[in-house]
Amino acid sequence: MPRVSQTLEQYWDTYKPSRGDDVPAPSANVFEWTQHSHGPGAEWLGNPATALELGAAECKEAVHLARRGVQVTALDFSTVQINRARTWWEGTPGLHIVHAEACHYLDTTQQRFDAIYSVWGAAWFTDPDLLFPLVRSRLNSGGVFAFAHAEPLEGLYGPEGMYGNGFNGPKLTVLRWSHSPEQWTDLLKRHDFADIDAGILPAPDPDHVGTLMVRAYAPHS
């Protein structure tokens, strides 16, 4: 199985929202890690002065942080998502919107951040053995790396392949990485992260899908 999704941009061009260019901007009044609008908010990142979002899409979490005084770089691979976000949020003080692939950006930028985070974004869809060392290299001493996405199916771990546009039309091969909290912890330890907190936040309805939430820190130098 390939370790990198083959047609990421085409897939993400149609992601949230996908109804056209006249969609109004979403609310940026809250920072939401979960699909159920529950659990922690921006405070889960601590009090960073600088932050990088990997796979920002609508950029509403990045805008929320920028309005709180954080200098935020919001990154996305999709041209459609970036153009839409710039239409909505261009000129927001403290917000810098970047069109780039996560690993390439982390490998080429000279900037360091107090926080790097992903809300159902690139940390789910990028090989952690490629992404994590790059994230670690761009974090300031004591900086936080946090990400969230759907809880995994128990016992079905590793890279999951899916057809990004269903079963009709050209093949859009998309991979996402599914691991248990314990496996994410081991991966982060392997790449020199410390103080790791990984777990499943249950949905308000226990029969619904919960949210896997992971937070780790760059050791203080």
Score class of each variant (00 low, 15 high):
Gly164Leu: 09
Asp127Ser: 05
His149Gln: 12
Asn165Val: 09
Trp124Asp: 08
Glu154Tyr: 09
Pro170Met: 01
Leu172Gln: 12
Ala148Gly: 11
His149Leu: 14
Glu151Val: 09
Phe125Gly: 12
Trp124Cys: 12
Asp129Leu: 13
Phe145Tyr: 13
Phe132Cys: 10
Leu172Ile: 14
Val144Ala: 11
Ala148Glu: 03
Pro152Gly: 07
Val135Arg: 06
Ala150Thr: 12
Ala150Phe: 14
Phe125Glu: 11
Pro152Tyr: 00
Gly155Asn: 09
Met162Phe: 14
Thr126His: 05
Pro133Tyr: 01
Val174Gly: 00
Lys171Ile: 14
Asn165Met: 05
Leu134Val: 02
Ser141Tyr: 01
Glu160Met: 14
Ser141Ile: 08
Asn140Asp: 14
Asn165Gln: 09
Gly164Tyr: 05
Leu130Gln: 14
Leu139His: 00
Thr126Arg: 00
Val174Glu: 15
Glu154Thr: 14
Thr173Leu: 13
Ser137His: 07
Pro152Trp: 02
Asn165Ile: 03
Val135Leu: 03
Gly164Val: 04
His149Ile: 01
Leu172Pro: 06
Asp129Ser: 09
Gly166Asn: 09
Asn165Ser: 13
Gly164Thr: 00
Met162Gly: 10
Gly158Trp: 06
Thr173Met: 10
Met162Asp: 04
Ala148Ile: 05
Gly155Lys: 08
Asn140Arg: 14
Gly161Trp: 08
Leu131Ala: 04
Arg136Ile: 01
Phe132Leu: 15
Leu153Tyr: 11
Glu154Ser: 13
Trp124Tyr: 12
Gly166Ala: 05
Phe132Ile: 05
Tyr163Leu: 15
Val135Pro: 07
Leu130Asn: 08
Lys171Gln: 11
Arg138Gln: 09
Thr126Glu: 08
Leu131Glu: 07
Asn140Phe: 02
Leu130Met: 13
Pro128Phe: 05
Val144Glu: 05
Val135Asp: 02
Pro152Thr: 04
Val144Cys: 15
Phe147Lys: 06
Gly166Gln: 05
Ala146Cys: 09
Thr126Gln: 06
Lys171Asp: 12
Glu160Lys: 15
Ala146His: 07
Asn140His: 13
His149Met: 11
Phe125His: 15
Ala123Tyr: 14
Gly143Val: 03
Ala122Lys: 00
Gly158Gln: 01
Leu156Ala: 13
Pro128Gly: 07
Ser137Gly: 12
Glu154Pro: 10
